[in-house]
Amino acid sequence: MKRIANHPPRDLFSDAASSATETLGPGATILRGFVRGQESALLGEVAKIVALSPFRHLVTPGGFRMSVAMTNCGEVGWVSDRTGYRYDPMDPETRRPWPALPDAFLGLALTAAARAGFDHFVPDACLINRYEPGTKLSLHRDYDERDVAAPIVSVSIGVPATFQWGGLKRNDRTRRVRLESGDVVVWGGESRFVYHGIAALAEGDHPATGPLRINLTFRKAR
């Protein structure tokens, strides 16, 4: 299942080196327009993954249904149910392994992480979230991964979203940052456990996704 040894192509994103960068905090960077123009190719890979492991609305340990629909690809996938949050090598709905991480996804994650200063990042999981108008992702921290030295790489495709960037405590002041289609956010190091989320998605339209936003989140879970 691993594709690391194949040195996935990065040529799709070779022109992204000139994209503008914006610092969110220590170890946290926005790569503006990093994958702009490649959305259709990335969405084509998403469609292949969804055909094997469809989008679903997970249930939190507290019994709440998440408004954001999601699926996964890679060696493991992130899941949630009444027993807790975890990474699992099997899709609990299909009872099969998650679809493999596409080479284009891996090349994107490696290139974006390196551009943000994380040269040795190699993800083994990609969470794929689908936002519809009105859906949101509450403030949270990503702490289910074993390799906390690895960054998070988050890719926005489709309708713009308001990214909420907080601090290391839940009640720290939160910044609201607009993310456009093609923007990539990378955070690690001192910012690895910063609280973050997505405000309720506003009504909008994008040529590639219609009223939706698709988010790819790459992680090193093991």
Rank of each mutant, 00 (worst) to 15 (best):
T217G: 03
V59F: 00
V35R: 05
D11R: 13
F13W: 13
L12Q: 06
E190K: 09
V177L: 15
D11C: 06
R213N: 07
G63A: 02
L179E: 05
H140Q: 06
H206G: 08
W165V: 01
F64A: 12
P26T: 01
P151A: 03
G188M: 09
G197H: 11
Q38H: 14
P54K: 14
K169D: 14
R65I: 04
F121K: 03
G182E: 12
A5F: 14
S40W: 06
A51C: 10
V59I: 15
K169C: 05
D142W: 03
V184A: 09
P123H: 10
N129M: 09
V59R: 08
L42D: 01
L201M: 15
G182P: 10
G158W: 12
M70I: 07
R32E: 15
A5E: 12
R32K: 15
G77C: 05
G197S: 06
L216W: 11
K48S: 14
L212M: 08
G62W: 01
R141E: 01
H7S: 15
I152V: 15
D91Y: 11
G25W: 10
R176K: 14
G27Y: 08
L201C: 00
R173V: 10
L216V: 05
L42E: 01
A104I: 15
R213Y: 14
S154A: 03
H196D: 02
L12C: 04
A41W: 03
Q164S: 01
G62F: 07
A17T: 13
D172H: 14
I128N: 11
R86C: 09
R141I: 14
G27R: 03
D81F: 01
A114V: 05
F218A: 03
T217A: 05
T94G: 13
P54H: 12
E45R: 13
R146E: 13
A20T: 08
R146Y: 13
S53Y: 12
G204E: 01
R86M: 09
M90E: 09
S181N: 04
S181V: 02
W187C: 04
A51L: 14
I49A: 10
P102L: 06
L101W: 06
R96C: 10
L58Q: 15
K48P: 00
G84V: 12
P26A: 05
A69K: 08
H57Y: 06
I157P: 09
